[in-house]
Design a protein around this nucleic acid. Sequence first.
DNA 1: TTATTACTTTATAATTGTTATAATTAGTTT
DNA 2: AAACTAATTATAACAATTATAAAGTAATAA
Lengths: 148, 148
Amino acid sequence: MNQLKEALETLKETGVRITPQRHAILEYLINSMSHPTADEIYKALEGKFPNMSVATVYNNLRVFREVGLVKELTYGDASSRFDFVTSHHYHVICQDCGKIVDFHYPGLDEVEQLATHVTGFKVSNHRMEIYGSCPECTAKEEKKEVQH
Amino acid sequence: MNQLKEALETLKETGVRITPQRHAILEYLINSMSHPTADEIYKALEGKFPNMSVATVYNNLRVFREVGLVKELTYGDASSRFDFVTSHHYHVICQDCGKIVDFHYPGLDEVEQLATHVTGFKVSNHRMEIYGSCPECTAKEEKKEVQH
DNA sequence: TTATTACTTTATAATTGTTATAATTAGTTT
DNA sequence: AAACTAATTATAACAATTATAAAGTAATAA
């Protein structure tokens, strides 16, 4: 149940030192139900750590990613978003407002297997995202249509 | 058969002017069996168009994307790669050398439908990529193992 | 304890992919 | 041809991220 405790345990096991900053970043990632950017994390912890550098946030997010605690979701020019890894899930992303909603679905093992077979790759993982318009944005769009 | 001709036809239909630069970029995208970055395209066409600006490449790739001729694959900080849209296919990406291989697979309509149902989003499309190690890199890796 | 070493954070500079801007050129429409 | 619109160029700006060097902190060894 206590994800933070488990995460800290993982850090210990992998020999990653648990600094106050790391603790805080992890805690924030777990509690935040959103998928924050590095900058959002940085700003959120400004109160607690007035001297913390942005680089620290980036460094530690990378550390967490390498240990497998955190997933990085990249979007070209825009900021990456970071997601504390819990169970296997995908993301549904609103193309209008950028909102990200978790979407639980069994892993696409079949696809991985076929890809292995067809390409000869040693497949390790995959990424899937679903794009569309969230209910709120869809509603707004329809309102506009009516006014025309 | 002639993809370039079809693409130019699409441009005409959508009222996008066919400039020499656009023609060349499209041609390069279609003939290149790789998935070039904007910069690669820029460099490849330097000979033909010594005065062409990088901005032109970016602008036109955006135009092509908006018309649906081209797909943009974003990777966080790293350069986007651009893929001329042919039939529906996915990509298998080597995490060691970055090679991208096309992978034909029926669209994941089922997943989109479920996402629509569960999240209330108006789903328009999805993105899937498979990551792993290509045969060449796997071989290299195994060679290393033996030497240890 | 003290000395040594390795890790971490901080502050800042540098890098890089991409976009915005303004001026120029080319194409279209009247 | 004149007026208008779109496209290209050259350059500057921007924003996300990373590299670097200095300073701080913790772990280990003597």
